[in-house]
Design a protein around this nucleic acid. Structure first.
Length: 570
RNA sequence: GGGCUCAUAGCGUAGUCUGGACAGCGCAACUGGCUUCUAACCAGUAGGUCGAGGGUUCGAAUCCCUCUGAGCCCGCCA
């Protein structure tokens, strides 16, 4: 692709008689919007002024001057555009050979070679189970991690467990009052759901009894004073919550390299702020310490309370530094919802004023809210789409579809497939939209298996695999047997896979990769209907088998970067 | 009051950074295609003042300005 771009540019440089250099021409060349317009195009508008001629005329003159270019099948003028058509043979050869040779490495790049990057995501509170918003967060965090790895980076996945504070004490208090010593095992509940019920219970009872809020504050004090009884219960309840989270993240195929606990670090950071106070980075006012951010058009931020106690940002300052020191990072990414955008601006600006050189390498990967038909999800009111319930629900839907298609399938196999399909549907649904956009989730309509979905892409893969399983792998491939427009289109899409991966990495958004995979799948499915691979003449059959295999490799690699698994059969 | 973000067919969206050829795609509607490599598919019809107005440009969904609407945030909460 790039070689052809060069040869075309070189030929044009000649035709221009040195008026434009090769590099200037490369900048001008672009990919036409549609297949029938060719593979590369030179728009002649910008040349009109210098050459004092109409763009149409310039395109026509250039066409006359260029006889033939190696690897270019034909050159056409279409109005002000000069269009180049590549020879399918070489084009297809390049795409297919790279894919078959590089296999699971096809599409990867080295842009971030030797870079160490941390991605912080999920970061739950231990007083309630995970919900749909967490699933969006995890899908994004995991996918971005994989895309960075595909660009050669060493990625450290991390999360900060928010395991202390007033909200945690609320579920503890509810358990002390009404838990009757029950355990998740006895109640036959998933352990984090068990905890969540007490959090909801607290909110309900607190509406009628305002004393409960005060009691919760008192409980927090006891916790801070390390009251053994309180600490024991806290440990017990947190272990239940964490056990439940682990089950959910495992099911979602997410693992962390490092977990930071708020309870371990919430007192840290004060020394750093004291140092900063001496250097006059911070200011004291009425006992509290704050940072002046007015110059940066941001509200000022208190970093230590008047009573000397820490705030969330106190420990975040510490943790940001800790991360860079623990892992010698080149970049630190925080996958956190858009409602915290201002907070992160303040945090990063503060660290820059503290003169940490790495502060500029922090990035808040912000994503939009997830809404339900009746508004924002609120854990304390129980109006959420629970992560586990949603997975179960979609799993059941997938199971029904599988049994429709395969009546003899074993229970175990059906279950395995349903799980992979369900997760694919959920993840793709959450990833295919640009991260900045809010999602309005409608349980009845949102997640489907048809159209622009994960299962659609998995299905394309399974069909292609099914063809491959019915044929012997060809030894020699004659690429000139690939001459159909669809074959050229598919080759072109395969050739741009690496760009799609790099694009998703550079923009920190997997949705571009989702749309790439939809385009590839659509093209292959259309090809599938147009021609038969297995019934073709030997020469065509072999070439088409190779093309089909290249498609499977690309889909497999692409889905993997989204955290989605492929299936040989569907 | 201020800041950030978003606005593209009935609904959901891509394209906006980096201006370019009739604004793509999915769902829903309608039509056609399974004794033919898996119909979770494919092909087609219909559906668009790209929120409004101005500007820059040979050319604007894309860049600039103004306005409107929606969401989020502006705490010594997290």
């Amino acid at each position: 692709m790039n070689e052809l771009r060069e040869t075309v540019a070189l030929a044009l440089e000649k035709a221009f008689n040195g008026l434009k250099t090769k590099d200037e021409i490369i900048q001008l060349l672009e990919k036409p919007p549609a297949q029938e317009m060719g593979d590369l195009s030179l728009p002649c508008f910008s040349l009109a002024k210098e050459l004092k001629n109409s763009p149409q005329q310039i395109a026509g003159d250039l066409k006359e001057k260029i006889k033939s270019i190696k690897g270019i099948e034909s050159i056409e003028c279409k109005g002000p555009y000069l269009n180049f058509f590549f020879e399918t043979k070489d084009y297809a050869k390049k795409a297919i050979e790279s894919a078959l040779k590089e296999k699971e490495k096809f599409g990867l790049n080295n842009e971030l070679k030797n870079k160490k990057i941390m991605v912080e995501f999920l970061s739950p509170n231990t007083n309630k189970p995970l919900h749909l918003g967490h699933l969006r967060n995890m899908s994004l965090g995991e996918s971005i991690s994989r895309i960075y790895e595909a660009s050669g980076a060493k990625v450290f996945r991390t999360q900060i467990i928010n395991d202390r504070g007033a909200h945690i004490c609320k579920s503890m208090l509810a358990y002390m009052n009404w838990g009757k010593g029950k355990t998740p095992e006895k109640a036959k509940k998933k352990s984090d759901h068990f905890i969540g019920e007490f959090y909801v219970m607290f909110s309900e009872k607190a509406k009628e009894n305002s004393m409960l809020e005060i009691e919760a504050q008192q409980l927090l004090l006891k916790w801070e004073n390390k009251d053994p009884k309180v600490r024991k219960l806290w440990k017990q309840m947190n272990s239940w919550a964490l056990k439940g989270f682990k089950e959910t993240t495992k099911r979602f195929d997410v693992k962390f390299d490092k977990e930071y606990f708020e309870s371990d670090i919430y007192l840290k950071g004060k020394e750093l702020i004291q140092e900063g106070l001496k250097k006059k980075i911070f200011t004291e006012q009425n006992g509290a310490i704050y940072i002046d951010l007015e110059k940066y058009n941001l509200p000022n931020k208190v970093v230590v309370r008047a009573d000397g106690s820490s705030l969330y940002i106190t420990q975040d300052i510490f943790l940001a530094k800790q991360k860079f020191e623990d892992f010698n990072l080149d970049e630190s990414i925080y996958v956190v919802g858009s409602e915290q955008a201002l907070y992160f601006q303040q945090l990063i600006q503060t660290l820059e004023l503290m003169q940490y050189p790495w502060a500029k390498n922090m990035y808040h990967l912000s994503y939009g809210m997830v809404y339900l038909p009746d508004g924002k999800m609120k854990s304390r009111e129980g109006t959420v789409v629970d992560a586990d319930d949603l997975m179960d629900e979609i799993h059941k839907m997938a199971l029904i579809e599988i049994k429709k298609r395969d009546k003899k399938i074993s229970k175990n196999e059906a279950k395995k497939r349903a799980e992979i399909i369900a997760l694919s549907a959920i993840k793709f649904y959450l990833l295919k939209v640009d991260a900045v956009k809010d999602i309005h989730f409608n349980p009845e309509e949102s997640i489907s298996f048809e159209g622009e979905t994960g299962p659609y892409i998995q299905y394309t893969y399974a069909r292609a695999k099914s063809i491959l399983s019915k044929a012997i792998k060809p030894k020699k491939i004659d690429y000139s047997a690939l001459s159909l427009p669809k074959e050229k289109e598919l080759s072109s899409i395969l050739n741009s896979f690496q760009d799609a991966v790099a694009d998703s990495m550079n923009h920190k958004t997997p949705h571009k990769l989702c749309h790439y995979l939809l385009e590839l799948s659509n093209s292959f499915n259309s090809y599938y209907h147009e021609v038969s691979v297995l019934k073709a003449e030997e020469k065509e059959k072999n070439a088409r088998l190779a093309l089909t295999e290249a498609v499977t490799i690309t889909i497999h690699n692409g889905l993997k970067l989204l955290g989605i698994k492929t299936l040989e059969k569907m």
